[in-house]
Design a protein around this nucleic acid. Structure first.
Lengths: 215, 215
DNA sequence: GTCTATACGGCGATAGAC
DNA sequence: GTCTATCGCCGTATAGAC
């Protein structure tokens, strides 16, 4: 944007460009040359700052993961402390998981939209889904599972893990923003409407967890 | 396997090899050379049979889609006719969607496992998710949505579409078989246990749809 | 340290000869 | 149906400008 480059600006431009392209085309669908072009920098600069292509991908993935974890954990702690000493309601826990990331003003920023699509891509990637997601997100997820365990005493761990699996699938498909639901619903629902998706998914997933009590 | 090639055998070998590789590495992560090598055929044969790479991908995707749609629609018609004239139960509709594909003996076949992973990849692909999935699967999906509408009178279309979105996300994450739930649950749940996943997801999703009545 | 220009070895899809 | 040739683009190393 600015004609005068401040320190580290090109580094950020590379991360932004890589994020945008990786999220649309996946890791193998993007060349370092395309990233350099979009970032308006020389081909070799990405390698200078980040090393090989794979390390650049990790850097992109890491950049916003910690912010995202922090938002969610803050919302969770708030919910837990507000209901203490009673366990929080399922619905409140689920909202703490979704709302900070789907209802904030940042969801309209291009960078965050791209990042979410990237997480959607990684989470359902046969190659990286297990490793990358576990590495960056599992610690925070475990806190949520503990909270759900408190709210659902007697429910088996197995049921809780599969519940999280369903939640995670619904969320990352939302992230991917494929336009599928737009087509299926003839435009009634829009896949880029993250805030709108949020309330539907929260209600759906909450009911999914609550039925575990009766099993 | 056989030393004597029957007519069309190499064609099938190419489809099988492409299916296996595309499902693991995505479209751009696979080269025609790698496919040819795995299929034990010449590099140029894929192009001879299927045209450009992209058309080969479509051929792989199409091959099992119709079988899958047919399995599901047969199960749905059975459920509808058995409960007629009353509308079927939500639970029965959801089972008709999941069980034919997750509980059949075919789920242990390598080819089907690969195909499911491929569907998982496509469904959450930002580039193709909307177009390819809609093209091959929407007609059958609409029949299921009609059945759900019968079972949930008064529920808004918007809620139904988002419900399907959640169902679809959970299913395709299952398909992707990323190993994530194995890691998260310390081996208690296994992502390659499709039949086991099925019963958990059916119960979860059924509850999700049923809460729509009370909204 | 930050960045650009250039070069290299290798592999990509696919067209055309056979 | 098969094989080979072609041409372009790939990731990355390096040399040196600022």
């Amino acid at each position: 944007m600015s004609e005068i480059s401040s320190r580290g600006e090109k580094r950020t431009q590379i991360l932004d460009a890589a994020e945008a392209l990786f999220s649309r085309h996946g890791y193998d669908g993007v060349t370092l040359r395309a990233i350099a072009k979009l970032a308006n920098v020389d081909v070799a600069l990405a390698n200078y700052h980040f090393g090989p292509k794979r390390d650049l991908f990790d850097a992109v993935f890491l950049r916003r993961a910690e912010i995202l974890n922090q938002w969610r954990l803050e919302a969770l702690e708030k919910v837990i402390s507000e209901s203490a000493p009673a366990p929080p309601e399922i619905c409140a826990i689920i909202r703490a998981y979704f709302e900070p990331i789907l209802k904030g003003p940042h969801v309209h920023e291009e960078g965050w939209k791209n990042y979410y699509a990237l997480v959607g891509y990684v989470n359902s990637s046969h190659e990286w889904g297990g490793k990358l997601m576990s590495q960056f997100f599992d610690p925070a997820i475990r806190r949520f599972l503990e909270a759900l365990e408190m709210a659902l005493p007697g429910v088996s761990d197995e049921d809780l893990y599969w519940g999280y699996h369903c939640l995670s699938g619904a969320l990352t498909l939302t992230f991917a923003q494929t336009g599928r639901i737009d087509h299926l619903s003839n435009g009634l629902c829009r896949s880029d409407d993250l805030a709108g998706a949020c309330s539907h998914i929260v209600a759906f997933v909450t009911a999914g967890f609550e039925q575990l009590r009766d099993r």
